[in-house]
Structure formats: structure tokens, C-alpha cells
Design a binder for these strands. Structure first.
Ligand SMILES: [Mn+2]
Ligand SMILES: [Mn+2]
Ligand SMILES: [Zn+2]
Ligand SMILES: [Zn+2]
Lengths: 143, 143
DNA sequence: ATGCTTTTGAAATTCATTTTCATTTACTAC
DNA sequence: GTAGTAAATGAAAATGAATTTCAAAAGCAT
């Protein structure tokens, strides 16, 4: 699974005429070893701890490439930091975000997805992406 | 309608122990004269054109107050600028955002709203707010 | 190895927003 | 009205995430 993702990214990079670099390999390995909605800064710190030479700009640039390749998805919550999560092919989910403890609960709802398509259709709108976030308090934080 | 909004904001301000200032009155007047999703910078420029003395920081601060008072709603789209829209009591809508021409189409969908409540319920989650944005191309921009 | 091009890292820059702080202003008590 | 106070303001500085710049390093085709 991790190997396939690496292969997939390498194919993408090859198709795009990108060179293969030590930095991108390392960042990919570390990204694949993380779970859920990691911020660029968080990932940069992880990368730096084992590879002090790798710069922040490279981490920013590389994560954008991951998103472009379809490996990762940008998640912009209300905290001013761009986060990335792993993309599971053929799967989509949205987020419940706890403003108490910053927990993120993922959910899928086929009906909502379809209703969005209906709405777009009704307005002659072509959907590229969408964002559904529910903010509030998780069970633990409701006191 | 505009008068009621002013009254409502004045009540809010009074209840909060805020002083009434010329600047806030002016910014409120101008905000109420605008339509749909104005950015802070846009509003600041409008304010400045008739009242050169009013500073940007005051506009930022005042719009936050409007949102807090329930008069305005913050709308954060994917362009890095905070926008504000008028709140119509008892009404809620979400947005279709055209990445071609930046048009914003508003829509309401009671079923989606209810499904969100169901999802929250299922996770023991208390909803404070939510955000549903559909990005893509409007009818005019699909070529 | 050579030459060309991409990639990188450090530092500088950008841009929206927030903060700071001295000054002005609003309100309250006399 | 005046004085006293606390809040509000404006200009400028600061912040912080993200991007850009640019010289040096590295990848790749020959
Ligand atoms: Mn997720
Ligand atoms: Mn709207
Ligand atoms: Zn929580
Ligand atoms: Zn459009």
C-alpha cells in the first residue's frame, strides 16, 4: 500500500518530467508514515528531526506536488494552517471539527454528495471540488 | 430594515458596554449599503473614499464586531481574504463558488441541513456552525 | 566527464491580519 | 461645563503562513 503510493507518485513525477530527489523521497516516506491532517509545519519538524538539511520551502513545495499527484488532499480548516491528509482512492469524506480539542471526525454521506450534484445541476454549475465542515463540540468536549 | 439593523447593533453594543463612535456608525452605514461578500479591504476602500481619516485597523475591528453581533457573517473562501455578508434572520444559505469569474451563487437546501444534524447527532457532536462550499465553474464559465 | 536544467536551502518578501502604543474621544460624576 | 476614566482610534510595527528569489548543488542525457 505504501509501496504502491510511492510508485504512483514516481509515475506522476516521471510523467511530469520531474527529477527524482533524495528530499522528495524522504518527505514522501515521512508523510506516508503520518496519520490524518498534518500541517506543513508539523511535517517539516518531523522531516527536520531526521534530516536537518531539508528546508521548509522544500516541504511546502513537495506537499503541493503530493496534492497535485492525487496522493494527498489539502485540508483548510479555520486555524490558518494548511493541512494535508492521505487520499484513499475511490473514497471521499468530510469533517466534523471540534473547536474544543481540535479533534477531527471524518464522515461520509452519499445523500449529501448527491444533493450537491443536484444543486450544481440546477445552477448549470460544474463541480471541481467541495468543502463541508461542521464546527462545534465533540462528545468529550460538550462537558 | 436598515434602521432595524442599526438599532439591533446599537443594542448589542450597549449590552456589551461599548461606546458609540462616529467611526462605527459610518462603517455600519457603508456596510449596510453594500451587497454580498465584501472583503475587508474592499470595504475599507469604500470607507476611506468618503472618510479618509478612518483607519484600516478600525474597519477590521468593527467588522468583527458586526459578526459578533449577528449582523454579519464571516465568509472565508479560498482566496485568502476574509469576506463579510449580511445576515438575514431566520435564513441560512451556502455557496457555489466559480473559480473562473469568482461569482458566488447562494443556495439553500433544507435536506442537507437536516442530514448534517443527523450526522452530528450520530457522533454526539454539538454543531456551532458549518461551512459548505462547492467550487467549480458557473454556467457562463463552462465555455 | 560535460553541459544543461531542475531542485534545493537560506534568506528575503509578500500579504492579510493583528498588535502596539500614543493620542483622541466617549461617557460618568461632579 | 469640567475633570477623570476607560475605551476607541490610527499609524506604524509586528506577526505568521506561504511564496519567491537566487546562488549553489544535484540530476540526467549525451
Ligand atoms: Mn479527513
Ligand atoms: Mn452568501
Ligand atoms: Zn473535542
Ligand atoms: Zn464563473
Amino acid at each position: 500500500m505504501i509501496l504502491e503510493k510511492k510508485k504512483a507518485f514516481n509515475s506522476f513525477a516521471a510523467a511530469k518530467g520531474l527529477r527524482s530527489t533524495r528530499q522528495r523521497d524522504i518527505i514522501l516516506d515521512i508523510f506516508l508514515s503520518t496519520h490524518q491532517h498534518i500541517s506543513v509545519e508539523e511535517l517539516y519538524l518531523k522531516v527536520k528531526s531526521s534530516n536537518p538539511g531539508i528546508g521548509q520551502a522544500t516541504v511546502y513545495r513537495t506537499l503541493k506536488l503530493f496534492a497535485e499527484s492525487g496522493l494527498a488532499r489539502e485540508v483548510l480548516l479555520h486555524d490558518g494552517q494548511t493541512r494535508y491528509e492521505h487520499v484513499v482512492v475511490g473514497e471521499h469524506h468530510d469533517h466534523l471539527v471540534c473547536t474544543g480539542c481540535n479533534a477531527i471526525i471524518e464522515f461520509e454521506d452519499e445523500t449529501i454528495e448527491n444533493l450537491q450534484k443536484d444543486i450544481a445541476l440546477r445552477h448549470g454549475f460544474f463541480i471541481r471540488s467541495h468543502k463541508l465542515e461542521i464546527y462545534g463540540l465533540c462528545a468529550a468536549c460538550r462537558t
